[in-house]
């Protein structure tokens, strides 16, 4: 699993460089996210623009990261590809997360916060 971060005031951006978050990588994803977000500000934006496939283990890991960050920090998502969007929609997790159409929009939306 390869995750790349950029820190801005109040926002930590995490770009997933792999094309899948699946049963083979879900635990590692969760652990790396835990390490990378230890000193994160109030918002963490996970950019899923390169992720072409997400299974239920990957989805469970993203939910787990959201719980790890709470209550002081919030996990938001951006740039869902069609298959990933489908998994979020079918499981109704799209109503749980703030999902931005692009990472640029996610960053711009946070200026008031």
């Amino acid at each position: 699993m390869q995750l790349q971060t950029q820190t801005r005031p109040k926002v930590l951006s995490v770009l997933v460089l792999n094309d899948r978050i699946d049963a083979a990588s879900a635990i590692q994803f969760k652990e790396q996210m835990r390490d990378l977000t230890q000193s994160a500000g109030p918002r963490v934006v996970l950019d899923l623009g390169r992720v072409q496939f997400l299974d239920s283990s990957g989805l469970g890991a993203i939910v787990a990261v959201r719980k790890l960050l709470a209550p002081d920090r919030v996990l938001e998502l951006s740039s869902l590809t069609p298959t990933v969007e489908k998994v979020f929609r079918l499981t109704r997790m799209d109503s749980i997360f703030t999902i931005h159409p692009s990472h640029a929009v996610a960053i711009a939306n946070g200026t008031g916060g």
Binding site: G60, A64, I96
Partner: peptide, 11 residues
């Protein structure tokens, strides 16, 4: 509220 599993058979 925030389930981490149980999605598989639903899908």
């Amino acid at each position: 509220d925030l389930p981490e599993g149980g999605f598989g058979w639903y899908l």
